[in-house]
Design a protein around this nucleic acid. Structure first.
Lengths: 207, 207
DNA sequence: GTCTATATAAGGATAGAC
DNA sequence: GTCTATCCTTATATAGAC
């Protein structure tokens, strides 16, 4: 049941487990948990379905493994918000780091979005626990900057939400973004960076 | 196949069809297309599964009916961006209208988000067609304001994306937002409105 | 470790009585 | 129009040979 980690020993196990996780990330992030099938994942991983279930006890276990390895890295950019740096610079750098993540890890972002959209059945404790704790801590930092007059007086929580929203949008709504902009690789990320930098530098500058 | 509309005649048909659509919106928006089952929808609508299929030919048909009725209203706030109004005011009013939609129609927003996340299989033509056309038209309007020095010189497409992202976030990531903020109804929407108003008024003000 | 074959269950859709 | 019973496909998971 809570048997998730395969604990790979040999090289071949290592290789297959990571092939499965990569394939599963691809499939889950695009189809959601219920929409994904073991057939799709097995095919993408280059394995048979029973062989896949030799490495993970269930579909659920694969999904949980993906989420846990994702959550580990998800908090990182926010964690690096530095109390010692220049406040506006710190916020803008946070925005750009999150945008980089959206470009480099779009599947992870969509996996997370799928989970939240469907009511976060598997990560609800993570949200009200570690995530809330870190956000509250950083919100206090931002609040102290505002109180000191070093940034504009805004609600820190909504500032953080807006940064998540604007950056992850480029991963989660990728199809829509590309459908509206002229096609052409990841070129639009430069435009996004420029715009967001403008918006937050202006928006956060002290009075 | 493309048989979607039930064309209700009697009162009881009218009542059942709308009960089905409402139930389906609830279920699809939370579970996605694949994750939703006819059993769930039938139960939520207070009907038996076969009776539900008396009104709609298939699960797919219900989903398509929901999406079409959604897309009709989806473009409305953007369409109302007024070339004659004050540019910054118009943009801020657009943000607030979208935020209102997120509060009042969160299920519709999540239905849409689910569809986009999964690659927009059913509304791809809508995105590259009517949606893109309207966005391009309004982007030209915003560009003309920028060129005239009446707002800050930003990329209009990314401005629009950021408005979609920040406002729909409160519907699509509702569980996360509530998990982080103290619980308490829709009170946080006031804070969101205040923050977004600040951000866009500052961000869009001309130099 | 990997496969073929299969048990088992869920879910979309239909038949046919009322 | 609505129901019970059922068909049939798909999908998760297991058995057991190699």
């Amino acid at each position: 049941m809570t048997d998730t980690a395969p604990a790979p020993r040999t090289r071949i196990q290592e290789k297959n487990t990571s092939a499965i996780l990569d394939a599963a990330l691809e499939v889950f992030s695009q189809a959601g948990f219920r929409g994904a099938t073991l057939d799709q994942i097995a095919k993408a991983a280059g394995l048979s379905k029973p062989n896949l279930l030799y490495y993970f006890p269930s579909k659920e276990a694969i999904h949980v493994a993906l989420l846990s390895q994702l959550l580990d890295s998800w908090l990182d950019p926010l964690r690096r918000l530095d109390p010692e740096g220049d406040p506006v610079d710190e916020i803008v750098r946070y925005v750009l780091r999150k945008l980089d993540m959206a470009r480099e890890l779009p599947r992870e972002s969509r996996l997370f979005a799928n989970e939240i959209l469907q009511g976060a059945p598997r990560i609800h404790d993570y949200i009200t626990g570690p995530l809330k704790d870190l956000v509250d801590e950083k919100a206090r930092l931002i609040q102290s900057w505002a109180t000191a007059g070093r940034i504009a007086p805004v609600d820190p929580h909504h500032l953080i939400f807006s940064i998540w929203a604007t950056t992850q949008h480029y991963a989660d709504f990728d199809v829509q973004v590309r459908g509206i902009l002229a096609p052409g690789g990841d070129a639009h990320f430069d435009g996004a960076a420029k715009f967001l930098q403008h918006l937050y530098r202006r928006g956060m500058a002290p009075d």
